[in-house]
Amino acid sequence: MRGLDRPPALVIFDCDGVLVDSERPMHEELRALLAEHALDLSLAACLDAFMGLSIDALLHSARDMGADLPADFRSRLYARVHARLARGTNLIPGVADLIARLRAAGIPMCVASNGSEAKMELMLEQHGLWTQFRDHCYSAQTLGVAKPDPGLLQTALHGSGVSAAQAVVIEDSVTGIESARRAGVTCLHFAPAERAVEGVLRFETMAEIGDVILCNGRGL
C-alpha cells in the first residue's frame, strides 16, 4: 500500500456512508415513500440513482423519473428518515480506529455533507462523535451550496485555514468525487462493494485509507 507524499493538513469526511452506515436505511425509507407516488424502484436502483445527491437534486431527479411528488414530500421524507435513524445507526467499520489514528497524529478533521446538520448531530451523537465534530461540520442545507458544486468543500477548507492541495477528502459517491475534483482536493474513494471510478483512488477498508493518509508506504 502506497501513501501520500506527506500527511495532509486536513482530512474531510463525508458523513453518510463514510462515517455512518446510513445509506441503506435512508434509501429504504426513500424507496418506500417513492413507491407511494408512482415511482417503484429496487433498493439497488434507488441507491444508484440518488446516493450522494442533495435533497433538491433528489426531488428533481425523482420527478424526471416519473414520480408524482406532493408539496409535502420533502417534510415527509425527512420525518421518516430521521425516525429511522433515531432508532440507531452503526459506524462504518474501522472508522473509529481511523479517527483515533488521525487524532494521535495531530491531523485536523472535519465533516462536509449534503445532509442537514440536524441529521449529522442525530447520528454522530449516537457514537460520541458530535462533540468532536460539532464545530467542524459543514452542511449543504445550512450553507446553501451542495456537492457536486465545489463550494461546500471550499467552505470547509476556508474554515479550517487549509488550501486544497493540503487536504484530502473521503467520499463514497460519484457526487462527492466530482465535488472533490472541482475543488482540487485529493479524493479517497471508500467503496467496499463498488467499482472503481477512473482517476480516483478506491479503498475497501478504512484501515487502508489510514495507511495512505499516514504515509505508511511510498508516495502515490
Rank of each mutant, 00 (worst) to 15 (best):
L152T: 06
L143E: 11
L153F: 15
A83K: 11
P108V: 10
T89H: 09
A100G: 05
M120D: 00
A96C: 03
L122V: 10
I107E: 10
K119W: 06
H127R: 06
L122P: 05
G161F: 03
P150R: 03
G94Q: 02
L153T: 02
R87C: 11
G106D: 09
I99W: 01
A156C: 08
F133P: 01
L153I: 14
W130N: 02
M123L: 06
L85G: 04
V81N: 13
I107L: 13
M120V: 14
S116H: 08
I99C: 03
R134V: 07
V111E: 00
M120G: 02
L157M: 06
L152E: 05
S160P: 04
L91K: 00
A140Y: 07
I92S: 04
M123N: 06
G128I: 08
S139A: 13
K119I: 13
A79H: 11
I92L: 11
H158G: 08
G161K: 08
S113E: 05
C110Q: 03
T89P: 10
T142C: 14
P148D: 09
L102W: 09
A112N: 09
T131F: 01
Y138I: 13
S160D: 01
Y138S: 03
T89K: 04
I92Y: 00
Q132T: 12
R80M: 13
Y138V: 09
R80N: 14
V145P: 01
